[in-house]
Design a protein around this nucleic acid. Structure first.
Lengths: 138, 138
DNA sequence: GTATTATATGCAACGATGTTGCAGTGTATT
DNA sequence: AATACACTGCAACATCGTTGCATATAATAC
């Protein structure tokens, strides 16, 4: 639980119960979460708006990053220490079509792509959809 | 303009002025369009709901496909003849951070990725963000 | 421990986005 | 031209996300 405070302080944020709860929800569930997921988990304790603002703050401070899938927007913890200044997220996201969960595959890097001349790439976002190990086992 | 009717008929759809206008908007602008873009272009002629339903129908029939970026959901024409039965979209999408336009890079395929054991991939979606040739030229 | 200051929260209200049901209109077919 | 079916517009609603403001809370200084 001290780790939560450490993470928040490390990103120059005040420790509040809402921020601690949102952060620990991200750490307990391993997969990417939408605002709705968090509202479902914490909605009785905190206002919708507060959760929105917490997500926005976490995004700006580099604690979480956006994850896109065909259903919409989710968020996941940044693994390597991201900060307000620098984000680095060229890893792969995998969404299971069976259980619906989206995860970061931290260790896999996105392979190089030879873009046509004139295109200057700055960031990459690869989403793979299919079946995850847990669902294949059943 | 006959081409519009052909495309619609080819996908077993009745030709209506709304569908013709939505389709020609996609063909004239080369980039991916959101519902809001279409409403801005055609909103005075057609009801919001009709445009939503047209997009939904086009999706189901394989005339357009979803394109995701950090701002949300857009749609783009399917190049290779997709149908209700089969969609094939493993090409790359490029979003320009300057002009905000998202395009399909039809000719580029997504390179292979060695997934960890247990993951069964079914579809791939690669979004590259950066600067497009037009914006770099200015 | 208390006072001060800056920040975070809750509430209310609003705007944008997307969906559904139903009556009326238009398209394709005979 | 008549019929059957599909599409459209309207109204109403549900969801999602944002903003302003008063209050509460956390960090800092005393």
């Amino acid at each position: 639980m001290e780790q939560l405070r450490e993470t928040l302080k490390g990103h120059h944020l005040r420790t509040t119960t809402c921020r601690e709860d949102v952060l620990s929800t991200f750490m307990n569930r391993k997969n990417a979460l939408s605002h709705g997921d968090l509202e479902g988990a914490l909605g009785e304790n905190y206002d919708r708006v507060t959760i929105y603002r917490t997500l926005k703050t976490f995004l700006e401070k580099g604690i979480i990053h956006k994850v896109l899938d065909d259903e919409g927007l989710r968020y996941a913890l940044c693994s390597h220490q991201c900060s307000e200044e620098k984000h680095q997220h060229d890893h792969i996201h995998f969404k299971c079509n069976e259980c619906g969960k989206t995860n970061c595959l931290e260790n896999l890097h996105i392979p190089n792509v030879a873009l046509p001349t004139g295109y200057q790439p700055e960031s990459f976002n690869l989403l793979i959809q299919g079946k995850c190990p847990e669902c294949l086992a059943n």
